[in-house]
Design a protein around this nucleic acid. Structure first.
Lengths: 167, 167
DNA sequence: GGATATTGATCAGTATGCTGACTATCAGTA
DNA sequence: TACTGATAGTCAGCATACTGATCAATATCC
């Protein structure tokens, strides 16, 4: 039994739908759900975060965790657990670096490479489903605006994006 | 020492910047950081999630947890902890419902009302900062596109938005 | 009315994300 | 070389989010 709800306009300064923060959370929530559904259907058990990390490791062999964190804008304390799980699944190897004994070098395994290859269609499909309410033009525009807003706010989170070049 | 990174184009099917899922995650990450920074600066200790729940409870006195979850698109298992913390902080009261002994009725306290009132400027400021890279027109367009994409994907997450009316 | 299904809330377990602290190591300098 | 500061990684602790299970209570159907 759903209780009748008053108009709820009296004191709400703004509707949730006018709050970019709320919309961001909601869109992200849907994006993750769609990603997991598509990837599961394809027979894999990989989160969006793990996928992004795996792809970045493949593209940048031997990189260390801090560099990886910067490439995909993760907090360095989050990376530890993500890599743990990728290693656990046999998709990544973590070795001590010879150059710097503090650092760990990350390497994708053959199994990881195979997984990436086979999972790609599901990932691409997921990206399409997230935007299924929009025309192609609108989807492009949404991504453009997100990129622009993100670029302006990059330094505001603890885990900003770093492009990997010398700063 | 940042290792030199290869071009990273060879095998990446898409750049992260072309993945709506990645952009969603990143924008949300910034949105949360901005919210917390603004609210902290105003002297409060409230998360975006707690704020949204508190505002919804104020606007809909006596609602139960499932209805609240639907109004702000939270999973019902997440709501339990959120309400715990709001009760802990003295901002919300949780009472057994007389109509339905399974349900808990939620009520905002005077302290909660006071907090909401005083925190509002910080929340509004945060919404502006999230969009600071965009013109007013672009900000509007971003929100429009997000709303549209979200509406189309609403049922794809475990915690869809429910408008509170009979379905 | 009684069996069945559904629902509200919670819980255990897992995975991000963050803050702040800590260790080990490295880099630069006096 | 000893001191200082910065850096790579980890950890403890907290707050979302979710899956799947359970319990109690309510609804529904025969």
């Amino acid at each position: 039994m759903i209780p009748r709800l008053p108009a709820a306009t009296e004191n709400s300064v703004k509707d949730n739908n006018d709050m970019p923060g709320h919309l961001a959370r909601r869109f992200q929530q849907i994006a993750v759900a769609v990603f997991l559904a598509e990837v599961n259907e394809a027979g894999f058990d990989l989160t969006p975060v793990q996928y992004a990390a795996l792809a970045a490791i493949k593209a940048n062999p031997g990189l260390d965790q801090v560099t990886l964190a910067g490439l995909i804008a993760y907090d360095r304390t989050t990376i530890t657990g993500v890599i743990d799980r990728l290693v656990q699944k046999g998709l990544v190897e973590r070795r001590a670096s010879s150059r710097d004994r503090r650092a760990r070098e990350l390497e994708i395994t053959d199994e990881g490479r195979r997984t990436l290859r086979k999972i790609t269609p599901a990932v691409e499909s997921a990206q399409g489903i997230m935007l299924r309410g929009l025309s192609a033009k609108e989807g492009e525009e949404l991504m453009r605006l997100l990129r622009k807003a993100i670029a302006a706010g990059n330094e505001l989170s603890r885990a900003p994006l770093r492009d990997g070049q010398a700063e």
